[in-house]
Simulated assay, not measured.
Amino acid sequence: MLSDAPPVPTSPLRASLTAAWPYIRRWAVPVLGVVILGLLLSRAHQIDWAGAWAALKRQPLQALLAAWLLATLSHALYGCFDLIGRGHVRHRVARWRSWAIAVSSYAFNLNLGSLVGGVALRARLYARAGLDEASVAQVVGISLATNWLGYGLLAGGLFASGVISLPPQAWLPGWTLRAVGVLMLLLAVGYVVACTKWHGQEWRVRGRRLQLPSPGRALAQLAFSTANWALMGAVMYLLLGERLPYGTTLAVLMAASIVGVFTPIPAGLGVLEAVYLTLLSGRLGQGTVMGAVLAYRALYYLLPLLGGVALYLLLERYAASHPEAAVPAAADRPR
């Protein structure tokens, strides 16, 4: 029924906030990141850098080599995330090329941020391979979902089990982390249930077609991602000299990773160190913890970046010398 009542006037303050919100949203997160980085740097002088350097020099060569091999295997395994997306989207970019694009973008993502590595670099390399924008978006979406679904399953189990607890300065109830863990588990399980129930159903999101993967592909997402996160934890476990239970080491890495997501600083610089120092320095000492974190950064972030740059250059060279390979890359319907 129509009403002749006049529209409720909008207050000037509300109108101003509505108009300013896009700018607030655009700048709030970077400003928050700068503030957090400033706080971390302000405490840098309190870190036992001499102890960290001594701990680095004490690292056995065998442990460093084993950690490097596990880090390399983790990066190689991450490349399979895009192969899962390839099977779902059914595009015809060669498997080796899809894998190489994922591995290269992952290395850039870790060091330069998700917008550079996870999105821009991937989009460019797939476009050079002839893949359309909608298909690229689906592949990237499947890859991101794979990464965080496995995280939710593994971290959820660890947090819910009480392997680690929040520090006193967090000012939150002790059950908070357990509750978050249970929620993560429910989300991961719910995803598989949704893929089982609604696979084959199609939705339109902003004009783009969206379809859930098959149940088997959803389980593959969880398996590959949990294995990848487990490898990352194993790298840190070795670098800490196996002095803590593996579950504890992995849970701290999971906590540091999620804090890094909400702190938009390239490579999570300072975030990983801050979380590890907060949760483990009381048990192992600042020097030991910082030495292990610095070694982790070198083996998992910096060295793979060199490989990522080499892969990127090879992919660009291949695209320039094989322009015909970009023609048959169009995607079929997801299944």
Score class of each variant (00 low, 15 high):
V140D: 01
S114E: 15
G117I: 12
L154V: 08
L158A: 12
Y151D: 00
A120T: 08
V116C: 05
A129H: 01
L131C: 04
L154R: 12
G157N: 06
G152A: 06
F108T: 07
A123K: 11
W148L: 15
R124L: 14
L131M: 02
V116K: 00
G156R: 12
G150D: 08
S135F: 03
L153N: 11
L153V: 09
A123F: 09
L131A: 00
F159E: 10
G117F: 07
G141K: 01
L158Q: 11
R128T: 07
A145R: 02
L153Y: 07
S114M: 13
L153A: 15
V119E: 03
G157T: 01
A160T: 04
G130I: 03
F108P: 04
G118I: 04
A120N: 06
V119Y: 02
L131N: 01
N111C: 14
T146A: 01
N111R: 15
G117C: 13
G130P: 03
G152Y: 08
L112G: 05
S135N: 02
D132H: 12
V136L: 12
A160V: 02
G141M: 14
G117A: 10
V116S: 00
L154T: 10
V136G: 09
V116H: 02
L149G: 07
R128P: 00
A155L: 05
L158D: 14
G117W: 09
Q138S: 04
R124M: 15
L144Y: 10
L125H: 10
G113E: 06
L144I: 15
L144P: 05
F159K: 06
L115I: 13
F108V: 04
Y126V: 07
G113R: 12
G118V: 02
A145K: 03
G130N: 03
A123E: 08
V140F: 01
L121S: 00
N111W: 12
L153M: 11
L149Q: 05
I142A: 05
G152S: 08
N109P: 08
D132E: 15
W148M: 15
L131F: 02
F108W: 05
G152E: 03
G150R: 06
V136R: 00
S143D: 06
L154Q: 11
G117H: 10
E133P: 15
G152H: 14
S114D: 14
A120M: 07
R122F: 09
A134G: 15
L125Y: 08
L131S: 01
S143G: 03
W148E: 09
Y126C: 09
L149E: 05
A129G: 03
L115E: 13
V136M: 09
